[in-house]
Design a protein around this nucleic acid. Structure first.
Lengths: 239, 239
DNA sequence: CGCGTTCTTGACTGCTTTCAAAGATGGTGG
DNA sequence: CCACCATCTTTGAAAGCAGTCAAGAACGCG
């Protein structure tokens, strides 16, 4: 009731987490407190958490989990957007988290252990991430360049919508074609040619960093694409 | 101390979970009890849990999480082996869990909520699954057919080893080339040709359902492959 | 022994990559 | 305000990896 947690209502991260699980004043205040410890990370820099901390929250910007090979090949396995959880587990593979744009992160609220609402939102976030990983595997395994690109754009539109970062069919896509290539398992040359096809066929417009999907419903039909609305994914035991 | 939970020491599922987190008598007894409710699922049938139950444990056999398209294309996103956790969340995509061989499953122990050891093992199992999903994305995105196949075989060997189901560099691979194709985002024809290359170059032998990797270390070096030993993946907060 | 499934093979097509170089774009300093 | 430079985008031609189609061989199970 104090205005303390009102201002952050407009935070994309809070918007997303609220959509995943209804958050009461206590949770919102905890998030508000956590956001005060926000830290900025410059483009191309690695996203890390304070030593000992294993869980972070993306507040703004785009980051990516990237696998790289010794010969210079790269594959982006997952993109992190505002409101996404950042799990910094240690793995044997050469995987790192890189800022694709300037990124703001904060540690997750300390009160988490006692806060069922936030726990629920985080559990939901983890389920969604696994769902996105599954979908990305299907995308890379069986779709051609045109479908891969449009399918990913639909998904990204939906994810940004969860955080309130879309404007109808339009959203900011602040990444290069090269990054898109690393994401979709293609070369930047072929991403470029694919984009030209899609622009020519009036599937999308992309200029000045803003992308517009002209007819998302038709695309979704063609791709068998099902949006993952908030609450679409359910599980009983949340641990 | 009673022999009640001794016999299951030889169960692949228990072997795997014990490798993920040390399990005491209470956890082992709980697993033993759960295994008594084992259920068999025939090949090609969908793997389901009792209504209301959302968590299961694979006891034996091979299962797969499969995405299929309306035109008949299929992509296997993840393979489930003995000791793997089966999360039956509901998702919007047409994803199902199919038995690649006869499969035995059981519900997870009821005592889970109070059993820190089992919780730790399950949390570890979830981390590993995410790690495998990441790696599969990298595989599909950037590796050619030969490397995709060998990389996946190395990983599968390591996973089976966790459950005690390997014999040196040899293990049972009870799936068809068609399934391998659905898994690796290839066609069965090309999987066949790739296997012939690998056999010709003395990379592997595969007959009678048993596969043998001739020089796994050389393969791993060539692929930048890092095995995920038990305990390789760490995270502090396990929720 | 017979039949269905799985494996194998050949020829041809096609999507994507590779290599190389020429434009466009945007930010910076003079 | 413009020149300049780094980055990003666009283009063309040629090569390669994987897909498609079709048919025959081998295998395994009842």
């Amino acid at each position: 009731m104090t205005p303390a947690f009102r201002p952050t209502d407009s935070s994309p991260a809070v918007t997303r987490l609220s959509a995943l699980a209804p958050l009461g004043p206590v949770s919102l205040a905890a998030l508000d407190e956590a956001q005060r410890q926000r830290r900025k990370i410059a483009v191309h820099r690695e996203v890390t958490l304070a030593a000992g901390s294993h869980l972070g929250l993306i507040l703004s910007g785009w980051a990516a989990r990237v696998r790289h090979w010794s010969d210079g090949r790269r594959q982006i396995m997952h993109v992190l957007l505002a409101g996404d959880l950042l799990d910094m587990e240690q793995a044997p593979d050469p995987v790192s988290t890189i800022a694709l744009t300037p990124v703001e992160i904060c540690p997750t609220p300390r009160t988490t252990s006692g806060d069922d609402e936030l726990m629920a939102a985080f559990a939901q976030s983890r389920m969604l991430e696994r769902f996105y990983l599954y979908r990305h595997i299907a995308r890379l395994g069986r779709l051609n360049a045109v479908d891969r690109l449009t399918d990913w754009l639909l998904e990204t539109h939906d994810r940004l919508a969860l955080a309130g970062l879309t404007n109808g069919n339009r959203f900011d896509l602040p990444i290069t074609q090269e990054t898109l290539a690393d994401l979709l398992g293609l070369t930047s040359v072929h991403v470029n040619r694919t984009l030209q096809l899609l622009r020519r066929d009036l599937v999308l417009e992309w200029s000045g960093g803003a992308l517009c999907l002209i007819d998302p419903e038709a695309l979704a039909r063609h791709l068998d694409y099902q949006p993952a609305h908030a609450g679409t994914i359910k599980q009983a035991s949340g641990f």
